[in-house]
């Protein structure tokens, strides 16, 4: 079940759609959600140009489908689901970059190795976050990136990715755990520069 944050501000859009005022409803949707949809796309495809092109496609689809919107879900949920589907089909077409995936037992072992993970970091290393993020499984990376793009709002991330709040928290925790593990396992690859420790 997806937890959806209450969005009373979308009531005006619903009313406009109910009376068939599609043009103004679309203008409001665009103003309200273009940045969010763009960030959602960016968290999924990790490329600004591609994310912008996808955002164009998504809003074009929204425009064309607007007359068929019957208000079963809130406009934000509807737009986010179109956005996710667009991004997923784009990613399916791409499939050029393999991602590192961890089995559940690996994730279980992460907690046990927590105390040794921070040794390299404690030495005063600057993490190469972009490289580390590239090593994360897609579902964790999306949550981690979106969490920091959306000002650390669990609810917003849940609404955008269509995930329950508990799942968002778990994915964020596991993602960060894995980032620490990767940084500890391959310190040279995950660290930009190392300061001398005293």
């Amino acid at each position: 079940m997806t937890i959806e944050p209450p969005q009373p501000q979308d009531q005006d859009i619903r009313q406009q759609l109910a009376v068939g005022d599609y043009h103004n409803a679309f203008e409001r949707l665009l103003g309200r959600y273009k940045e969010k949809v763009f960030r959602l796309c960016f968290s999924m495809v990790r490329n600004e140009t591609q994310a912008e092109d996808l955002t164009q496609d998504i809003f074009f689809r929204v425009w064309k489908a607007l007359s068929g919107y019957h208000g079963a879900a809130s406009p934000s949920t509807w737009i986010y689901s179109i956005a996710r589907n667009c991004c997923l089909s784009y990613l399916r077409k791409q499939r050029t970059r393999p991602t590192v995936s961890l089995a559940e037992e690996d994730l279980g072992r992460l907690e046990e190795s927590a105390s040794v993970q921070h040794d390299a970091l404690e030495a005063g290393a600057d993490l190469d976050i972009q490289w580390l993020l590239g090593q994360l499984p897609e579902k964790y990376r999306q949550v981690v990136v979106l969490f920091y793009l959306e000002a650390k709002s669990y609810e917003e991330v849940g609404a955008m990715l269509g995930l329950p709040l508990g799942t968002v928290k778990t994915f964020l925790y596991r993602g960060k755990q894995e980032l620490l593990k990767i940084a500890a396992r391959r310190p040279n690859a995950g660290i930009k520069s190392t300061r001398s420790s005293t």
Binding site: A114, H118, L121, L127, K176
Partner: peptide
Amino acid sequence: AFYRTARQL
């Protein structure tokens, strides 16, 4: 120590 690491990350 872990808190410092987490903060750094």
